[in-house]
């Protein structure tokens, strides 16, 4: 059954999309004319996808793909930092979040010189902030540091 897990998940996703598409409002014939309802195209796509997933499942059943090794801890830490990035951006500051994630990524990926990791984590976001703010005139979201900077 293992080879069928991925086609199965994707098929479930396609079925959910078809269900959601079926819930979309119908447009009056006066507007749509001889063309398609807005729900038709996504349903059409997902039906094709289900056919392709059937072929994929058959291929996987006939010649099971080699088992995929579980990712190392570094990869999972990297994904976890993305979640941390969301919370830090929401409750602290966009640039504090970038600096923290950079530092964690750098050290978890094997950088032993903590001062180097810290230096990179501070200087890179700072440089990018000044470049985008001063040269490209892009305002960044409000947070602890940006509030202080923008006043």
């Amino acid at each position: 059954m293992r080879p069928l897990i991925i086609p199965g998940i994707l098929a479930a996703f396609s079925v959910v999309i078809i269900y959601l598409a079926m819930q979309l409002k119908l447009s009056p014939p006066m507007i749509v004319g001889h063309s398609m309802q807005p729900r038709s195209f996504p349903i059409f796509l997902m039906v094709i996808n289900l056919i392709l997933l059937g072929i994929l499942a058959w291929e996987c059943w006939r010649a099971p793909p080699p088992a995929i090794e579980l990712e190392g801890i570094t990869t999972w830490i990297s994904i976890a930092t993305f979640a941390a990035f969301y919370f830090l951006t929401t409750y602290a500051d966009f640039f504090i979040a970038i600096a923290v994630v950079m530092f964690v990524l750098s050290t978890s990926w094997g950088e032993r010189r903590l001062h180097v990791a810290a230096l990179i984590s501070v200087t890179v976001p700072l440089t990018l902030f000044l470049l985008f703010d001063e040269v490209l005139k892009i305002r960044f979201p409000r947070g602890l540091i940006t509030n202080w900077y923008y006043g």
């Binding site: 970038i98 180097v116 990179i120 990018l128």
Partner: peptide, 11 residues
Amino acid sequence: PTAILWPIVFA
């Protein structure tokens, strides 16, 4: 080192 390069890519 990748430990320096990829955090910069993230930023």
